[in-house]
């Protein structure tokens, strides 16, 4: 394994789940729970002739950022597209529940210092959603994760991190939307139905999945940032993600609550407003919306580096 300092400088996009987990917490602080040596493999895959993995495609564990315990869930897209089944789904839920317990204990043992010691959950999504080989268990895991999110509301932040090759799609697109904070690099993508499926269902004229530029400006981080879905757009290094997470770790919960996109009547109204806007203006391309929000030359935005983009971009203003 690379040294931590090297990891911080290396590409998040190219990193595997374990490298990301280690690099998003303080140097030397990450302890893996249910790691490869525990051999918690899927019981469903062998009978279907599908290869297994000792960690079932998910790295879970706990590390620190300063005094904050960081509960990490990191998905591995190379293993069955990062899809969620029974074991990795269980690991995901268990890790969030562990964070919730830690929060309760810190609240009890250090009531004066809760803000400084408040735990957080960081989920590095790289998944297409439910693992079809074990779909019922996978779906159940989605529901349980959402439930656990609700129980953490106002107590500790749930941070969604998206910047890996597969992106975050399917049911996990909903899950990502239900977190408190979303951090992405330029290569990150979030959506519900994957581009290939849209093309298959609606035809190539509607959505050409081989047109990657189109795919990225529809589901990619720059679009999510302009629309206000993505709260932090960062450079593609593990260290940049670490910095953004550290920034959230110290924010008051009330401020974190403002970063959410769903979860209150006001936010639902805001989302309905967007639906109406899209209905009225009938955009043909994400660029039409970028222009609507004041970007004079929307076609130039995809070409800009993250730093240049952040300097010039005009985003939807949230109340």
């Amino acid at each position: 394994m690379q040294k931590w300092d090297e990891l911080e400088k290396s590409s998040f996009l190219d990193a595997n789940a374990r490298q990301r987990a280690i690099g998003m917490t303080d140097k030397g602080s990450f302890t893996e729970l249910l790691g490869p040596r525990d051999r918690f493999t899927s019981p469903h895959l062998p009978v279907l002739g599908t290869a297994v993995e000792f960690d079932d495609g998910m790295v879970t564990g706990v590390g620190r950022i300063g005094k904050h315990p960081v509960f990490v869930i990191s998905m591995e897209g190379k293993f069955i597209g990062g899809a969620i089944g029974e074991v990795n789904g269980g690991k995901m839920v268990g890790t969030i529940r562990l964070a919730e317990k830690a929060a309760a204990r810190i609240q009890k043992e250090h009531p004066d210092e809760y803000a400084a010691r408040r735990p957080l959950v960081v989920i590095s999504f790289e998944t297409g959603g439910v693992r079809l080989h074990e779909a019922n268990a996978g779906l159940l895991a989605h529901a349980e994760v959402m439930d656990a999110f609700q129980d953490c509301r106002h107590k500790l932040p749930i941070i969604c991190v998206v910047g890996s090759k597969v992106g975050c799609f399917g049911g996990m697109g909903f899950v990502a939307a239900a977190t408190d904070v979303i951090i992405m690099n330029e290569q990150g993508r979030i959506g519900l139905t994957g581009p290939e499926v849209i093309e298959q269902e609606m035809g190539k004229e509607e959505f050409d999945a081989s047109n990657k530029a189109l795919v990225y400006r529809t589901t990619g981080a720059k679009q999510k940032y302009i629309m206000g879905d993505c709260n932090y757009l960062v450079e593609d290094t593990i260290g940049s993600f670490y910095q953004a997470i550290a920034d959230v770790a110290d924010k008051p919960m009330a401020e974190i609550e403002k970063l959410r996109r769903i979860g209150s009547v006001k936010l639902v109204e805001e989302q309905m407003g967007l639906v109406k806007l899209v209905g009225d203006m009938q955009p043909k391309d994400a660029m039409d919306l970028w222009k609507y929000y004041g970007n004079e030359k929307p076609e130039e935005l995809p070409e800009l580096s993250t730093a240049e983009f952040l300097k010039v971009v005009k985003c939807r203003v949230r109340n």
Partner: peptide, 13 residues
């Protein structure tokens, strides 16, 4: 230096 203009199918940005 920005002179290569890859076709859409190779642009993941």
């Amino acid at each position: 230096h920005g002179l290569y203009n890859p076709p859409a199918k190779f642009r993941n940005w």
